[in-house]
Nucleic acid binder design. Structure first.
Length: 568
DNA sequence: GCCGTTTTCGGCCCGACTGTTTTCAGTCG
């Protein structure tokens, strides 16, 4: 799949063009990049069929660039821009307050190409002498370089969401706010998060702001005003808080939930109906038609309500206008977690503690799926041990009447695509998960073949964390997902949405692609301790971002139905 | 550079804040 590469180059071109004055050309390239990014089909296929220019925002010109990228791996135009501006744009953009115009100025006047150059020139006080710059700007840049170095990455949703909820709770406890909501990419359940956005309705803005900036979670105050304050929390994440009137809160919530791309679409729709949409409401001339709730704004624009997880401008606007949005799976639909570990392999607690954790989630069933033989590092179980655990589970089940424990294993797919547990033993298991834990750097064909081999084994019910990625650590392995989805559909193998905050694998877009291939999913936590069972909402959020409905996810079924949905 | 149930040319999302400015450019969300 070249989709990602094509989108990246188109976005880079837009970055470079931002330094020039043709603002609308920048927009065109960004729109084209977005179109490619959200594709669920292979861009090469679309190119072969001559359908590139049918994609939104892609015309003759950009289609030509894409063709070049597919055929040569790059585009001349892009190479020329790189020569013209040999700067590390991405790195410099990471510095707060440094935009394309300033980057261009700094490069042309002082030869600044990267953070080190920037720091040197700021320390020499060369920057304050430039047009439009001053001592304050120079000082701010110097301070922000440090943060750009330390926290250049976005944070993981799984880490930031609890922080956001804590801030929300504290403000609610103060009892001066009528409503507190977390907005932004957290509300959309995006896998990584830039900052925390909190919106408040209050008649005591000053007191709320004073309280907010004095929280012990706060490391540094960046901006403090009556309507908006920004702080940096301990650990480096920025947190914004904004005050709105009740009458416009829905509009504000919609606006600050984003995404940016969706906001743009929504405003265009408003304009096409002779209205104007902003964070202060939906207006016709001076009259506010809607704004109190998100729902009334959608309604006034003759659209169905779009759940936050879908707000990425990936086709949800059209679906909403057609009345064709999916009815997304919800957290409460999950009836069991079937990828769990205990002390038997590399988990932290015994079986009983995990069962108690699953009970707290309100589940009907759970499955222990320990690592197996060849995965020595995780204390993998051999056939004998697996059967021993199975007998212990039988005993436990005899004592329980409110929840069922399933016997399982997470078998390792070896370098040849074989499994490390014999079929006779796998047949005894209720749930067999197969996963790759080594050799992830092998070539494309080998990795794909390993997974396909595993799926063709009739004992294998689930492929766990199919791409093996770890957020910000290891990228998706180079597998042919189209082929994997096809075989999964044909063999009835379930694909996992793993809820581990570092994995979220399949990720949102791949969930959507899998569903378009007719695959079925299972959402698991892969918990190694009872508290990790709570991560399930991250998997559900990811599945929702991939347009998954209850019927697509088999562990929403009651036990009998679930077992029936497995192979055999 | 793209696009068209008002358009093949003239548009292209909106508002706030900051720092540099005497009316605005750049950045951010």
């Amino acid at each position: 799949m070249l989709n990602e590469k094509v989108a990246k180059i188109l976005n880079s071109i837009a970055d470079y063009l931002e330094m020039e004055d043709d603002f609308f050309r920048v927009k065109a390239y960004r729109q084209a990049a977005h179109s490619v990014e959200v594709l669920t089909t292979d861009i090469e296929t679309i190119h072969q069929e001559g359908e590139l220019i049918k994609l939104p925002g892609i015309g003759q010109h950009i289609a030509g660039k894409i063709e070049e990228i597919i055929e040569k791996g790059t585009a001349d135009f892009y190479e020329k821009l790189k020569e013209k501006y040999p700067v590390n744009f991405e790195e410099l953009r990471g510095v707060e307050g440094l935009g394309p115009k300033t980057i261009k100025l700094l490069y042309q006047e002082l030869g600044v190409k990267n953070l080190d150059d920037l720091e040197r020139e700021a320390k020499r006080h060369h920057i304050r002498r430039l047009k439009g710059m001053g001592d304050k700007k120079e000082k701010a840049l110097l301070e922000n370089i440090e943060f750009a170095r330390k926290f250049k990455k976005r944070s993981l949703l799984g880490e930031v969401l609890p922080l956001a909820r804590e801030v929300k709770k504290k403000i609610e406890k103060l009892s001066l706010a009528d409503r507190v909501e977390v907005a932004g990419s957290i509300r959309r359940y995006k896998e990584t998060v830039g900052d925390i956005d909190i919106l408040v309705i209050t008649s005591h803005p000053q007191e709320v702001m004073d309280y907010f900036v004095s929280l012990d979670l706060v490391g540094e105050i960046i901006v403090q005003g009556p309507a908006k304050s920004t702080v940096r929390l301990m650990g480096g994440v920025e947190c914004d808080i904004r005050v709105f009137d009740e009458e416009v809160f829905g509009a504000a919530l919609m606006y600050f939930t984003g995404s940016q791309e969706l906001n743009v679409e929504m405003r265009k729709i408003a304009i096409s109906r002779g209205m104007k949409l902003s964070e202060y409401g939906l207006f016709k001339k001076e009259d506010r038609l809607a704004g109190k709730t998100e729902r009334e704004i959608f309604q006034a624009l003759k659209m169905d309500y779009i759940p936050p997880e879908l707000r990425e401008n990936r086709g949800e606007v059209e679906a909403s206008r057609r009345g064709d949005l999916p009815s997304l799976i919800e957290l409460k639909d999950i009836r069991g977690d079937v990828h769990l570990h205990s002390k038997w392999s590399d988990g932290k607690t015994g079986l009983e503690e995990m069962v108690e954790g699953a009970r707290k989630q309100g589940y009907e069933y759970l499955a222990f799926t320990e690592h197996t033989g060849s995965l020595k590092i995780a204390n993998g179980l051999d056939e004998e041990k697996l059967m021993q655990q199975a007998r212990e589970i039988d005993h436990l089940n005899d004592e329980l009447d409110d929840i069922s424990i399933l016997k399982g294993a997470e078998v390792n797919i070896d370098l040849d695509g074989g499994l490390d547990i014999k079929d006779e033993v796998l047949q005894e298991m209720d749930v067999v998960i197969a996963a790759m834990h080594s050799g992830l750097n092998q070539g494309y064909f080998d990795l794909t073949r390993r997974i396909v081999n595993a799926m063709e084994n009739e004992n294998v019910d689930i492929i766990a964390h199919p791409t093996g990625r770890k957020l910000q650590k290891r990228k998706e392995s180079e597998v042919n997902l189209n082929q994997i989805f096809e075989v999964a559909q044909q063999t009835g193998t379930l694909l996992e949405v793993n809820s581990n905050p570092l994995r979220l694998d399949l990720r949102d877009m791949n969930v959507k692609r899998a569903l378009e291939h007719g695959c079925k999913l299972v959402i698991n936590t892969d918990a190694h301790s009872p508290d990790q069972l709570n991560n399930i909402h991250l998997g559900v959020g990811t599945a929702r971002r991939g347009w998954a409905q209850k019927k697509d996810v088999v562990n929403t079924l009651p036990l009998k139905g679930f077992l029936k949905a497995l192979k055999n």
